[in-house]
Design a protein around this nucleic acid. Structure first.
Length: 586
RNA sequence: GGCGCUGUAGCUCAGUUGGUUAGAGCGCCGCCCUGUCACGGCGGAGGUCGUGGGUUCGAGCCCCAUCAGCGUCGCCA
């Protein structure tokens, strides 16, 4: 007897005897006839129990949602007129001859057989029930297929999948580490990797050539809808390559894996922007290219303006940046107030709006807008009657950043962010360092192993802010999927970068001595990249939260509501590790 | 750590200016029903209104505190 999945039967099975195992999705009990929709991962199959099938028929009355049953019976065509076109298996049904109840279910805490929004805390507590629902099954299936395609791609391109350890060494830079006390070395701690960065570089020193890993990474920072404390990266490193080589193979990988997973054909090559261009045109280092609405430098247009804010901004070398809001002119005063408020949340001091209504132009600064200025603005923004124009004035980076965020706001309002389209791009030529506002110290944009661009090494000391890096990001729909870089491979240069970051020789030796030592034994030029799997899948399936593409995610407090982790440990546990909780008596 | 939204039946929600006995749909329980597929019909059970305090003759509703979930800023090499 054939054992089949509930989504698997069709007309070709008519007449055959089959066995099904699954969960009762729904019972429709007509007294003299009982219908059961049987569910498993694949889908639904209708099972029919009639009085002639007794004793199965008798027991069928007692079935309840989520009971686990085994049914043996015959596949037959449904009577003409009773087919269900909404069901994949809707042309056929199973006439039950034998019924075995394998497990009874209590009434579940939320409906499993409806695609209804349920409180997420409840879903997470009973994740095993949530995972029975088709939406999450689909997400996990896409994830599986995608990772399979990724592995196949790298296998076909001569990469070795290598597992690196999860218990490694703390790295005080960057994100907060998860620490694990070392029982055998009291007072010392392992850290969980924020990424296998150094290990994969050492794989290159080892001569392994092309490394890939579907790597779990850990960062002890606050959670967001797109951030979990543990997450998965496609981690890649290659020897004897330049930036172009890495970008090409990663781009090819995305094109092939999207094709294989979703059957979509991505446009190639991916557009490329420099960091500076991305900031100028889109006000973001991860531009959403699903729509236009490029930023407009309106400095020249307002060169002679009497409007004090614009005037003083321009005189002090700042920027006046304009942005088209499609259809924005129809907005109410309240909606304009809201967008001004958004601009302030984004860090602007204020926002000027101009409504290009059919019945005339409205704006808080209308009296400063002569016909020529308006015409020039309209032209530069590509705005039409019915649109609005938003203008931000500030120091250039601030104005760009604010305008970039407003660009996303207005795109959202105008429904231009189509979740079904995939707009990739590359952003490169990042600054090597950025200034930490709090400490006033230079810190790395990517990570401290990133090579300066050719000819930029000396800028590290003379003008750190203007040094560029061999660093590239892959961006999809305004989301940074991941970063890569060409690595530093000379101990001297690496040392200079550490110095530029304010590290002493002792610190360098203590933290990264092993790496510098490794570089003394013959190190190939190398570069690589890491891409966030969870975000890729999230965009592929159009979910608004990364949690919906992870089987067992943590909530905003970093807790697993199902396992109730983290949890306290016993005094004996602590003692064995040589730990005592602060504030606790001896 | 800051800010915002939410918390009423198992689930999703409604609940008027503070006023008698807190409602609906689904689910659940019982009975009936041979072609349903959100089956249908009849009947029924089910509520510390997140928690604590306060104001008031009277609080689901107002005030304060607190807990939880989500979003967001900080944070995220």
């Amino acid at each position: 007897m054939q054992r089949l999945g509930c989504g698997a039967i069709d007309r070709s099975h008519i007449g055959s005897h089959v066995e099904f195992n699954g969960w009762v999705n729904r019972r429709r009990d007509h007294g003299g006839l009982v219908f059961i929709d049987l569910r498993d991962r694949d889908g639904l199959t209708q099972v029919v129990f009639g009085p002639e099938d007794s004793p199965a028929f008798e027991e069928a009355h007692s079935l309840r949602n989520e009971d686990v049953i085994r049914v043996r019976g015959a596949v037959r065509a449904r009577p003409a007129g009773t087919e269900n076109p909404r069901l994949k298996t809707g042309e056929v049904e199973v006439q039950a001859l034998e019924l075995q109840v394998l497990s009874r279910s209590e009434v579940p805490p939320f409906p499993v057989n409806l695609d209804e929004d349920v409180d997420e805390g409840l879903r997470l507590k009973y994740r095993y029930l949530d995972l029975r629902r088709p939406r999450l099954v689909r997400n996990l299936t896409v994830r599986h297929k995608y990772l399979k395609a990724v592995r196949d791609f790298f296998d076909a391109n001569d990469f070795l999948e290598i597992e690196t350890p999860v218990l490694i060494k703390p790295t005080p830079e960057g994100a907060r580490d998860y620490l694990v006390p070392a029982r055998l070395t009291r007072g010392s701690f392992y850290a969980l990797p924020q990424s296998p960065q150094i290990l994969k570089q050492l794989c290159m020193v080892a001569g392994l050539g092309r490394y890939v890993q579907i790597a779990r990474c850990f960062r002890d920072e606050d959670l967001r809808s797109d951030r979990q404390p543990e997450f998965t990266q496609i981690d890649v490193e290659m020897s004897f390559v330049e930036q172009e080589d890495v970008m090409r193979i990663m781009e090819r990988m995305m094109i092939e894996t999207f094709e294989r997973t979703l059957g979509v054909t991505l446009e190639k090559p991916f557009p490329r922007l420099s960091f500076g261009e991305a900031m100028r045109r889109f006000g973001s280092d991860k531009p959403d290219l699903r729509f236009g609405l490029e930023l407009v430098d309106a400095g020249a247009i307002f060169a002679g303006t009497e409007f004090a804010v614009f005037k003083s901004t321009l005189e002090s070398g700042g920027a006046v940046i304009a942005l088209r809001w499609p259809g924005g002119a129809a907005s109410s005063r309240r909606e304009f107030d809201a967008i001004v408020e958004r601009a302030k949340e984004h860090g602007a001091k204020g926002l000027v709006w101009i409504a290009l209504g059919a019945d005339g132009v409205k704006s808080p600064i209308a009296k400063f807008l002569d016909g020529r200025t308006l015409m020039a603005l309209r032209e530069a923004c590509g705005a039409q009657s019915g649109d609005a124009i938003l203008i931000v004035a500030d120091k250039t980076p601030t104005a760009q950043g604010v305008a970039g965020k407003l660009r996303l706001d207005v795109a959202e309002r105008a429904h231009l962010r189509d979740p079904k389209s995939f707009a990739f791009c590359w952003v490169s030529d990042f600054p090597l360092f950025e200034l930490d506002e709090e400490t006033g110290h230079w810190t790395f944009t990517h990570h401290p192993f990133t090579s300066p661009a050719p000819g930029h090494a000396d800028l590290m000391e003379s003008d750190p802010g203007s040094a560029r890096a061999l660093h590239y990001d892959m961006v999809l729909n305004g989301v940074e999927l991941g970063s890569g870089s060409i690595r530093i491979t000379t101990p001297e240069l690496q040392q200079r970068v550490f110095h530029a970051l304010g590290m002493s020789n002792e610190e360098i030796q203590e933290r990264f001595g092993f790496l510098l030592e490794a570089f003394r034994y013959g190190v190939p030029p190398m570069g690589g990249m890491a891409l966030g799997v969870d975000r890729i899948i999230q965009i592929m399936v159009g979910e608004s939260s990364i949690r919906d593409v992870i089987a067992f995610p943590k909530n905003q407090q970093g807790r697993d509501l199902m396992l109730e982790a983290p949890s306290p440990v016993t005094k004996a546990n602590l003692e064995e590790l040589g730990l005592r909780l602060a504030g606790e008596q001896r």
